[in-house]
Design a protein around this nucleic acid. Structure first.
Length: 309
DNA sequence: ACATCCCCTTAGCC
DNA sequence: AGGCTAAGGGGAT
């Protein structure tokens, strides 16, 4: 199947979008990217304005891809809304076409509960283990893929089985959350219609869901583009680019403390949301991508690279 | 090689 | 009430 995009009205960069750390299920197979979306294996590649893709089982409706990659977001309009200064404009320019992915809430929720206190490679590893153990195998082009486990499968799993997937202390939280979703005490899809604040409060009632995990699930799966997740990278970005917007004492504390308190979290989130506006989540993704690139290419100032002693 | 530190945090205890 | 701490295991340096 083929999807033609006009770069002027619908800028999109597939590789950028798949590698910026928001989803953990994609892998490179030669020139193609392959992953699982809504129980289907998807193989996709981009040549400028053209997206080529195949799915197993066959899906003829292109809205499936358009929805997953949020091609319905008016990115030029969003970018103009978040462009509060030169810094964010530079971030946007450096990863043109980066889009937020519309993941499935259930998978997104479990993924980010598992992500607690783990780096990206380790998160991918756990999600892959879980899917292999509790998902369904689908073979495509001689490669094995596994669908994401259903709530019932994780609810029924033993703690030992979950720990064997390298979940560690997250095992209880994952199983308990799975049980609540499986028993339909909480309907994730309905949160799409709720306000940001109300959906956030509901998510926070689940074990393993703190402010950061809630904001990630809201942004990456529940269409709450005003969500502004604050993690260690966002704190580094704030320190590097936006320290002028905070009291000096606050900045000093951030430099010394690795993690920060729930109050600090709220402080930074509210800054992001008021400063960048209703598409703050997009600003967060662009800043996130920029600070990570700066960090890995060692362009960041020396003082920034040794914030914790 | 090898040690040491860090990681897209949460929850439970004072 | 808010600050401190423990909690896998892999990756980076």
């Amino acid at each position: 199947m083929k999807l033609q995009l006009n770069p002027a009205t619908t800028p999109f960069n597939l590789a950028q979008t798949l590698t910026c750390g928001q989803s953990f299920r994609w892998r490179k197979l030669g020139a193609w990217w392959a992953g699982i979306v809504h129980e289907k294996v998807v193989k996709i590649r981009q040549a400028d304005g053209t997206l080529n893709y195949q799915t197993i089982p066959e899906e003829s409706d292109s809205r499936f891809i358009e929805s997953y990659f949020r091609l319905d977001d008016d990115l030029p309009e969003i970018i103009s809304q978040i462009s509060s200064d030169d810094c964010i404009r530079r971030a946007v320019r450096s990863c043109t076409g980066l889009r937020i992915i519309r993941q499935q809430p259930w998978e997104c929720l479990i993924s980010y509960i598992c992500a607690t206190h783990k780096n990206i490679p380790a998160i991918k590893n756990v999600i892959s283990n879980l899917s292999k153990e509790f998902g369904r195998r689908v073979t495509f082009d001689q490669h094995d893929f596994y669908t994401f486990p259903k709530p019932s499968a994780l609810a029924k799993a033993s703690i030992e089985q979950l720990k064997a997937c390298k979940l560690g202390f997250r095992a209880d939280r994952v199983r308990e959350t799975a049980r609540i979703i499986h028993e339909q005490q909480l309907d994730l899809e309905s949160l799409r219609e709720a306000s940001y604040e109300s959906a956030r409060a509901t998510l926070r009632s689940l074990p393993g869901v703190g402010p950061k995990v809630a904001d990630c699930v809201l942004l990456f799966s529940l269409d709450k583009l005003e969500a502004f997740p604050v993690d260690v990278w966002m704190r580094r970005a704030i320190l590097e680019y936006y320290s002028d917007h905070f009291p000096p004492a606050f900045i000093e504390r951030m430099k010394e403390k690795g993690s920060g308190t729930p109050r600090d979290y709220r402080e930074i989130r509210l800054f992001g949301q008021t400063y960048f506006g209703r598409y703050a989540g997009y600003a967060q993704e662009y800043l996130f991508a920029m600070i990570r690139r700066q960090w890995t290419t060692k362009e960041t100032s020396i003082s920034m690279r040794r914030p914790y002693k």
